[in-house]
């Protein structure tokens, strides 16, 4: 006997449907929209938010939030730039990711062991890590010249597909599998749905929640690497600035409930694309950029409204 899934369809498929509709509208209304370079731009420009969004989805699924990801990007990219400056590319990448892990462990432990609210903990981490990033190079931009490393961001598979496609695809697939096919994923969703019951069910909730913050920050580290490579510099002031809000917006539009529960990685990816598509659409139609912010706000509010409709 089959019963109809009573999951709200907007929560499950709202974001992909909205994305397709937006793409179709643009095909007809925006001049020169149908071209490979538009698609390519769309993905490369939203890659950072998509990668951050995957991590944010995990954290929000536990019922938490992480507003420190922008600062994590800044710190890890500064560490990376320092090492790449001395031509240690591999070491740079490894150390940068280890720094991200360390920040995640600290955040996770403050939240789980000392029971400080995620919003406050990550707010503190946001300030602290931004400060650390500035201290690392006296608050100034660190330029480096390393052709091998900066070329990496411009690699094109088969001459046309930017490396961003591959990175985002691999990370999104990994995130999806992790959240839907593993014990960890089940624990994350269960914790978001009922933390007390999950703890009593014998789940090591401290480990699970900390791991979610660690993974989220590692993904922020990856975004930091990608951005630092593309710009041949690390800017402690502007790197990752306000990116956390975009990542949260993408997650919410994508259909992961803010109160915790079922994570929707595919939705988050579509959410990030929708937000970027709006910017591109506004640009290509010669409308001032400021309008795109208003339009994004509308999309966020409408999507939450649709997800809250019962059946």
């Amino acid at each position: 006997m089959k019963i109809k899934s009573e999951r709200n369809i907007f929560q499950a498929y709202g974001a992909p449907i909205a994305l397709v509709i937006l793409l179709l509208i643009n095909c007809f209304t925006t001049p020169n929209f149908i071209s490979w370079s538009t698609i390519s731009n769309l993905v490369t420009h939203s890659a950072t938010v998509m990668i951050l969004g995957i991590g944010m989805t995990m954290v929000i699924a536990t019922g938490g939030i992480n507003i420190s990801v922008g600062s994590v990007m800044a710190v890890s990219s500064m560490v990376l730039a320092k090492l790449v400056f001395k031509d240690h590319i591999i070491t740079g990448v490894i150390v940068c990711l280890l720094v991200a892990v360390a920040t995640g462990v600290i955040t996770g432990i403050i939240i789980t062991v000392f029971k400080v609210q995620p919003m406050i903990t990550t707010l503190a981490m946001m300030y602290a890590l931004r400060g650390v990033a500035k201290l690392l190079n006296g608050g100034t931009i660190l330029n480096y010249k390393n052709q091998d490393f900066s070329n990496f961001a411009y690699v094109k598979i088969a001459g046309i597909i930017p490396i961003h496609f591959v990175i985002v695809f691999v990370l999104a697939a990994a995130g999806f599998i992790l959240l839907r096919k593993t014990r960890f994923g089940l624990y994350v969703e269960a914790y978001g749905d009922n933390p007390t019951a999950t703890k009593i069910a014998g789940v090591n909730t401290i480990l699970v929640v900390t791991a979610a913050y660690v993974l989220c920050n590692v993904l922020a580290g990856v975004s930091g690497i990608l951005e630092a490579a593309a710009t041949t510099c690390a800017d402690p002031v502007n790197m990752g600035l306000n990116k956390e809000t975009d990542a949260i917006a993408a997650t919410v539009v994508g259909g992961t409930p803010m109160a915790g529960g079922r994570p929707n990685v595919f939705g988050t990816i579509c959410g990030a694309l929708i937000l970027q598509l709006i910017t591109i659409m506004i640009n290509m139609n010669n409308v001032p950029y400021s309008y795109s912010l208003v339009l994004k706000a509308l999309i966020i509010v409408i999507s939450i409204y649709a997800q809250n409709i019962k059946k």
Partner: peptide
């Protein structure tokens, strides 16, 4: 408050504590 994980399925609710027995390398 302490038992039911309301929005997850019966399958998931039954198996959550017995995960070690039904998963390998962390995969369910």
């Amino acid at each position: 408050e302490e038992g039911v994980i309301p929005n997850m399925t019966i399958r998931e609710n039954i198996s959550i504590s017995g995960m070690p027995q039904i998963s390998r390398w962390g995969f369910i």
